[in-house]
Design a protein around this nucleic acid. Structure first.
Lengths: 150, 150
DNA sequence: ATAATTTTGTTGCAAATACAACATTTTTAA
DNA sequence: TTAAAAATGTTGTATTTGCAACAAAATTAT
């Protein structure tokens, strides 16, 4: 069997590295673009769900959004019913950065799929989606402290 | 166009997170498994090439291998001709861990491709390989301080 | 041959990442 | 209805990560 996981790791690290370098121009430090885009696309999302969406530790997400809040890119709002949760929303400043992040994202996607036909691109997306669904089950399992037997 | 890059990011973070948790059992701290496997498979490789293989910053790789060396999992050997380079080799202890890492890796791969036919798996591997080739060009470009225009 | 450039490696920082441990609220079970 | 469990969020601490800046050797250009 060909090694798909290493290819995925290489692609992910390359693109994350590029994004982090390019977004410094907008005063976004490492990783922050990840959180900001998801909050823009899911206004009102809470920390816990955000960390599950991105697949990152809860505490990492907590500190990332603390920083985004300190930089006035997002804001936390108390929920009127549930006293425990804090809903996350982009500020206007955050919303203004959103299209810049997406522009970079689309450019990177274009680079990535260069030479693939439309059909191949669609197929790749479908296959990756299925792989992700498989993998996130394991992730949630292991993150909850459970063991995988192999 | 479907978003393939986010899927890749989610898969990569999930699996890296799982691996890091599982390899603590072998006293491998975060990320170290990445370097150890590549050194086992490419004995004599130098730091610079290793970082390019993994797609990680040179200084990050430097510190990871310093730690692997301190833990007697790899060793650095001077080259008789080129005084500048240091060739990296696994120790016996490092080689003993290698199959354990690979076992986990294969298990994760099985989980990831669950439900994909042999044909689909092969196709996915091929497409990812092409994407990776595309992306690594950009990575090397940006890492060398050059700008991407978009 | 000498100078300029690239390759390779290292340290000093500053920042992100994540595990552990905790607190509080909400939900579920007895 | 109370007790137990789960969900949600935070801080303390240790570690990794990576950009700058540097140094030395090797390669390339003049």
């Amino acid at each position: 069997m060909k090694d798909i996981l290493r290819e995925i790791g290489m692609i992910a690290r390359s693109l994350d590295s590029i994004s982090n370098i390019e977004f410094k121009e907008y005063d976004l430090t490492k990783g922050q673009y990840l959180y900001l885009v998801r909050i823009c696309e899911n206004p009102g999302i809470i920390l816990e769900k955000l960390s599950e969406l991105i697949k990152v530790d809860r505490t990492t997400a907590a500190r990332a959004i603390q920083k985004l809040e300190a930089n006035h890119l997002i804001e936390k709002k108390a929920d009127p019913i549930n006293k425990k949760i804090k809903c996350l929303f982009p500020t206007e400043k955050g919303q203004n950065i959103y299209p810049l992040i997406m522009k970079e994202h689309h450019y990177s996607t274009q680079i990535a799929v260069n030479g693939l036909s439309e059909k191949e691109q669609l197929l790749l997306a479908t296959l990756l989606h299925r792989v992700r669904k498989n993998v996130e089950v394991s992730w949630e399992h292991v993150k909850k402290g459970k063991k995988r037997e192999y």
